[in-house]
């Protein structure tokens, strides 16, 4: 892992998670695990965020919210699916109101396994997301800025 030029901010959204992964996302940002030492902080505003950490599988209603949040984030952006529910649906994949993993709705860059995902693996996942973010930035420098989507 190299050093980053930027300090990306994380936006966290709970799309039908059971709360377990949400707590672990918060815990990974607090003193014992301390994701903040990498310059990463939790933000509540999608317009300030570079990384979207989604926990939980997606249902009909949270799907619109998730898309809305994703569209509000500035480019380039990275999506991290935290926990088994976000990757596949976990025990809930047979439920009538569950669509499945987050990748049914958004393009996911990093999958973090675990039920609930451990803070260590969340930190790993978010650092991986930072690398992808760096890559996306350098890609953009090479190819030039893509025209804004209508």
């Amino acid at each position: 892992m190299g050093w980053f030029k930027r300090s990306p901010w994380v936006l966290h959204y709970n799309a039908t998670s059971c709360n377990g992964c949400d707590i672990e996302v918060i815990v990974s940002l607090t003193p014992l695990y301390d994701l903040e030492r990498f310059g990463i902080i939790n933000t509540g505003n999608p317009k300030h965020a570079d990384i979207l950490a989604v926990t939980g599988s997606v249902n009909e209603k949270s799907r619109q919210v998730l898309l809305n949040l994703y569209e509000q984030m500035p480019n380039p952006k990275v999506v991290v699916a935290v926990g088994l529910c976000a990757t596949s649906g976990c025990v809930f994949q047979d439920c009538y109101n569950v669509l499945g993993g987050v990748d049914k709705v958004l393009p996911v860059d990093v999958y973090v396994p675990g039920c609930a995902a451990r803070p260590e693996s969340i930190i790993d996942g978010i650092l991986k997301a930072c690398e992808i973010l760096e890559e996306k930035y350098s890609q953009r420098k090479k190819t030039g800025y893509p025209a804004a989507k209508e």
Partner: peptide, 13 residues
């Protein structure tokens, strides 16, 4: 209902 999964119906499965 942003988090409604319908897990009560899982008793069928």
């Amino acid at each position: 209902s942003y988090v409604h999964r319908g897990l009560e119906s899982l008793v069928e499965k």
